[in-house]
Design a protein around this nucleic acid. Structure first.
Lengths: 341, 341
DNA sequence: CTGAAAGCGCTTACAG
DNA sequence: CTGAAAGCGCTTACAG
């Protein structure tokens, strides 16, 4: 029953298939009377155009793909909301592709586009390994790819992007800790390969340096971007012989693990140890204590990145590729206090 | 540069386009020598088949779509892992479609399939409104749709599904509270339109009835499936003149909000109020106190649902559509204790 | 405003 | 094993 083609409709309405096509896609090009006849035939047959044929014929899908590290990451709820709003506005449907962290290569990305499966791609995940792909990436530069949230790796630097200033934000978080009187400040970063958390580490180091505070060996530890990883990292920190009084976590997910582990060690937050996060996911305000963190304008990023992509798709390479920096904000809750000693 | 077609490759390799096609898709049908020639030409041109044309010609995409309520819901991380594992195994790529809770109608689902955009659909979100679509849904019954996690609404009852027994699980959760000595047990359910949380409510009511425990007016309250909604619901519960000593939340997301709000009211968990959740999302073990909850075998559900879908796609309607029930498990942590009084 | 015709890039019987 | 040809279901100049 699904499989009536345009021919059947044309036969029933007693017009050519061209007219059926026009009635659907450019109704202003046919007379009212014809349109009605066709409409009738469509209703009778239950016809719906074969999208596969349309896509093929038109050479486009009106679909964009957003690539993100993992479904289930609460940070992306708001980003997607923004993307979706903009997409609806522009007549695109959006489809999500999940990639295990750092698994997609630039070539694979390119292949998706080249093979026409989608009209454009929004990258919300980092792409690697880079290196051998650099040269091919160069030829990809015209492709409609836009990067959101992530820090762009060198070989993708020519693609447009929209994100906060991660270095500055991390610096601000660290400075806040310093302003509260902390001197022994540790950091849990994501993973070596994550440029984004690398930037946050850079900001932390810059702030520490500027305040002339030393960073002891073992104070900067990898949290693997997961709760489990952060818990392990925190355990190490808590048993460090020069135990820090504050911990800056490169994201809230890890901060949640950190919070739990500090308390498990019999210490209290923020009295004994202050914790600060990054992202302001929705769980951050209901942790115990509520988490002080950096908030990103996630929905706005989503919207902007989608509009940016549309411009790329429409205008090709003519559009600017300067990164768009959106403002972050320090959200003060209760997980940071002045140090006891 | 992306746009060489099969013709160009054929010209370069000095063979017909049929041979090029065969070299790629059925290499065993061509001689080694031809294959090499073609391979060479492909390398030279950077040719990659136009997927749009392939999909159209083949009448299929080798893509399945999973429909879920929202990216950013941590419950789906594991489900997707299972789906992806099975999909890889079967040669499908998977694409995710987000739907605001309860926004997709059966007709829209059908349209996706009928228009060939995808070979099959996994529904992890409920579909509504049902009613007018029932009849058309009947004609959809042959479509490759499989439902996971969700409780199926009447008009979708003929589609295969895999999920836990939500009623039994909710009963078990409630009975656990009862076994600890609780008599005044409240419940925060999801939303009226969510069949899944409706089932959980049914289980709760059954357990209460069986234990001959009364449910006071205002003890069963809507949490909107969100943290904010659950907080509001909890506030009402905490100011109820017959305050419950335990709260069963229809999912962990709401339990997290509930936990926070109980503590905000100056009460402690579990000493004053016990809280039990549902789903065992990854945050459940790091809440304060760690959350006692019902765990679902999410990854297994994902795998099974994908394999089930494959059978549907391959065998058409010949496959059974009996629901597959997978086992749940009560995970006891620290958010439940015996009541004080 | 409408129709006949070309053609998008593939795949696949059908011959040879 | 290979090629010539048909055809998948649309859209869109080109005539009229």
């Amino acid at each position: 029953m699904p499989n009536v083609s345009i021919k059947e409709v044309a036969r029933l309405a007693d017009v050519s298939i061209a007219t059926v096509s026009r009635s659907i896609n450019n109704p202003e090009q046919v007379t009212e009377k014809t349109r009605l006849k066709v409409q009738d035939a469509i209703a009778k047959t239950g016809y719906s155009p074969n999208k596969l044929a349309q896509n093929f014929r038109r050479g486009r899908t009106n679909m964009v793909m957003v690539v993100l590290p993992s479904v289930g990451d609460p940070f992306f709820t708001a980003v997607m909301k923004g993307i979706r709003a903009a997409a609806r506005n522009k007549g695109y449907s959006v489809v999500i592709e999940e990639t295990q962290l750092n698994t997609l290569t630039a070539d694979e990305i390119g292949a998706m586009l080249v093979s026409n499966q989608t009209d454009g791609i929004i990258l919300l995940a980092s792409v690697s390994p880079f290196g051998t792909e650099i040269s091919s990436a160069k030829s990809h530069r015209q492709l409609p790819i836009v990067i959101g949230c992530e820090t762009i790796s060198p070989e993708l630097a020519d693609f447009p992007s929209v994100h906060i200033d991660n270095i500055a934000a991390a610096k601000e978080a660290t400075n806040y800790l310093i302003s509260q009187g902390h001197k022994r400040i540790a950091m849990i970063y994501g993973q070596e390969s994550s440029l984004l958390t690398k930037d946050r580490e850079l900001g932390y180091r810059a702030a520490m340096k500027q305040a002339k505070l030393p960073i002891a060996d073992g104070w900067v530890v990898e949290g693997e971007l997961t709760i489990a990883g952060a818990r392990k990292a925190t355990r190490n920190l808590m048993s460090h012989n020069d135990r820090p009084t504050a911990i800056f976590c490169a994201n809230d997910e890890m901060a949640i693990g950190c919070l739990h582990e500090v308390k498990s060690a019999g210490l209290s937050v923020p009295e004994d140890v202050s914790v600060i996060g990054f992202d302001d996911i929705r769980y951050a305000e209901v942790t115990d204590p509520p988490l002080t963190t950096i908030s990103q304008p996630a929905e706005e990023i989503g919207e902007r990145v989608m509009y940016r992509l549309c411009r790329r798709i429409d205008a090709g390479n003519g559009t600017s590729s300067a990164p768009e920096i959106v403002p972050h904000k320090l959200v003060i809750r209760q997980s940071v206090a002045k140090p006891a000693n």
